[in-house]
Amino acid sequence: MTDIARHPDAPASPSHFIGLMSGTSLDGVDGVLVASATGQVLAEAYLPFPGDLRDTLMVLQAPSENELHREALAANALARVYADCVRELLAAAELPASAIAAIGAHGQTIRHRPGEFDGIGYTRQLNAPALLAELTGIDVVADIRSRDVAAGGQGAPLVPAYHQAMFSDAGQTRVVCNLGGISNVTILPAAATGQSVSGFDCGPGNALLDGWVARHLGTTYDDGGAWGASGHVDDALLATLLSEPYFRQAPPKSTGRDLFHAEWLEARLATVPGVSPVDVQATLVALTAQCVADDVLRYAPDCRGLYACGGGTRNHALMQAIAARLPGVTVATTEALGVPPQQVEARAFAWLAQRCVVRQPGNLASVTGAQGPRILGAIYPH
């Protein structure tokens, strides 16, 4: 590969990391370029998925015809979007590829079945890290979840280790809540409790909300949560949705579109006929808010501050619904702690890439249920 001229301000050895995240919302790629010495974000970028790639990724969430071929082509297409995002980050930071130690590229989860089948199960993140390394000229850290799964863990959520590093306060218990396609919480206990950090997936987030609004309004999301806010919660439907056994399962636990998909919703709608589309949307907002609030009250009753991140923070109806169910708890975004909510996940995977490169564990066994701390990720040199 052709050598890239070093930027005059670049360090003698690469010391920056890039984090890329495309989550279960399937909307696009968030990227950040981070200075590892300070944790400062030098550039951020967002690239939406092309419509055909998003459609293919949605289809690949479930078994389909010629699946292996379609997955391979989608992985290559995803790597090209990732590479475009990297190029935007480098241009914004005015740095060459040679200044970057590694890219943390999580990939796109298309199956998540830990603990099933043989007691280990599997998790599958569609990715083409070798192609990404070739396109960018930068080392890539990928396959970040599977080592935790191999050690008997859920492989998710992995971001709590970063939450602990960034957001813990010894004097109070905090909860960090990611409102992505799936909602999850990290519980950061006050030092006086003597408890370990915990975290798990609560249930559906934007995945069901976005799917329902796309079906009825033809848009990719409910802008500001306005449509859902104009409806009314149907108590019978909410009770039916909340009867899902996953919500009563004790952590460690994780989930995804393998469980919470359109067919899951349709099966429950069939038992409560006659609910208008806008009232279904309002009820889905209530479902997500209730799952988050119930888990905070159950597992972090001393919490006085919940800090949300992810795309769901832009759904004002959802944020208000969570706050209404947690009286006495300050509900804000991670902006209040110094990190914009859209950066948190990408920054976490830059952090995890750095941990892999320096051979330090990236998981929390208290969160995932793994047999112990593990170095996460496989390195694809450029």
Rank of each mutant, 00 (worst) to 15 (best):
I379K: 00
D84A: 15
G28Y: 03
L53E: 05
E65D: 13
Q249Y: 00
L259A: 10
V86F: 06
A207V: 14
A286T: 09
N315R: 09
D235N: 13
G121A: 10
A239E: 14
G310A: 12
S196L: 13
Q343M: 07
L287E: 07
G211S: 12
E244Q: 13
L259G: 03
V292H: 07
R80H: 14
M21L: 10
A353M: 09
V213M: 07
N178T: 05
S98L: 10
W212A: 05
R314Y: 13
D235K: 11
E263T: 13
T2R: 14
E335D: 15
T56R: 15
V29A: 05
T271C: 08
S254I: 01
A165D: 10
R355N: 12
V296N: 02
G171W: 00
R124K: 10
D210T: 02
Y307G: 03
Q343H: 15
C202G: 00
T333A: 02
P245D: 03
R113L: 15
T334L: 03
Q164M: 08
T186V: 08
P160R: 05
Q108Y: 09
R304K: 14
W264Q: 03
E244L: 01
G362F: 05
L73C: 01
D222F: 06
H7A: 14
N127Q: 14
A133F: 04
L132K: 10
M1V: 09
Q172V: 01
A350T: 06
E67C: 08
A99C: 10
S183M: 00
R248E: 13
A370P: 00
L318T: 02
N76K: 14
G338S: 09
G372A: 12
C202K: 03
V86M: 06
Y82I: 02
G312M: 12
P63T: 12
L237I: 08
G171K: 00
A45P: 02
G152C: 09
V86L: 05
V344W: 00
N178K: 03
D9V: 05
L78G: 06
P273H: 10
E116Y: 08
G305E: 15
L364R: 02
L179A: 05
R374D: 03
N315I: 05
R70F: 00
L297A: 14
A97T: 14
V272D: 11
C202H: 04
G377S: 12
A161Y: 05
I110M: 09
T368L: 03
Y380C: 05
L95R: 14
D210I: 01
L259E: 12
G23H: 02
N76H: 13
G152Y: 04
A350C: 09
